[in-house]
Computed example of a mutant assay.
Amino acid sequence: MIAKEFEVFLTGYTDHFLVPAKDLAIVVGTHNMDHVLLLMMSNGYSRIPVIDKEKRYLGTVSISDIMNYQSENELTDDALGKTDVALAVSDIIETISPNASLTEIMHKLVDNSFLPVLDEEAQFLGIVTRRSILKAVNALLHEFTEDYDIVSKS
């Protein structure tokens, strides 16, 4: 459990936690894998969210997901390039709701560099990144004593 004072401090940064969908590289499941690979390689992304045409979250995809799909299905590069990316989507990354607690976010970010944020209808709202949380923790470590006194119990 996060100490109450720390949680209050960090919650002041929650507006900075969410990177909205409009500010992200996102692909639609019907985009072909050539398009997705080009987007990922030209921007240095390791994994990106995939949505359907109604903006519902399908999962994420990485270059290794695409290469594994190609290998498992014995596809040539040409055939792979014309294939919808939805077929290679992975659901290994956990998701959170917009009301997720700081504790839940912190636990899930241990194993993931970002967490997709979904509403009740699985609409993709954006992501919370490990980086945004670490920036808030950095602020906590540097600014906490401006508002709080730390007193030893002993």
Rank of each mutant, 00 (worst) to 15 (best):
G81H: 06
K82M: 13
K82Y: 11
K82H: 13
T83Q: 09
D84T: 06
V85Q: 06
V85D: 01
L87M: 13
V89W: 02
V89A: 08
V89G: 08
V89E: 07
D91W: 01
D91E: 07
I92Y: 13
I92F: 07
I92T: 12
I93E: 03
T95H: 02
I96E: 03
I96Y: 02
S97E: 03
P98Q: 05
P98E: 09
N99Y: 11
A100D: 01
A100Q: 02
S101L: 05
S101M: 07
S101E: 09
L102Q: 02
T103G: 05
E104T: 14
H107M: 07
K108Q: 08
L109P: 13
L109A: 11
L109V: 11
V110G: 05
V110K: 14
D111P: 05
N112F: 11
N112T: 08
F114M: 02
L115R: 08
P116R: 06
P116D: 09
V117M: 04
D119W: 12
E120Y: 03
E120D: 11
E120W: 01
E121T: 12
Q123N: 10
Q123Y: 00
Q123C: 05
F124Y: 13
F124D: 08
L125V: 04
L125Q: 13
I127L: 08
I127Y: 06
I127F: 01
T129H: 01
R130P: 02
R131V: 12
S132H: 00
S132Y: 00
S132F: 03
L134M: 15
K135S: 10
K135L: 13
A136W: 05
A136D: 04
A136M: 05
N138I: 07
A139Q: 11
A139E: 14
L140A: 14
L140P: 00
L140S: 08
L141V: 14
H142G: 10
H142K: 09
E143G: 05
F144I: 14
T145G: 04
T145A: 03
E146I: 10
E146N: 11
E146R: 15
E146A: 12
D147W: 10
D149W: 14
D149Y: 04
I150K: 11
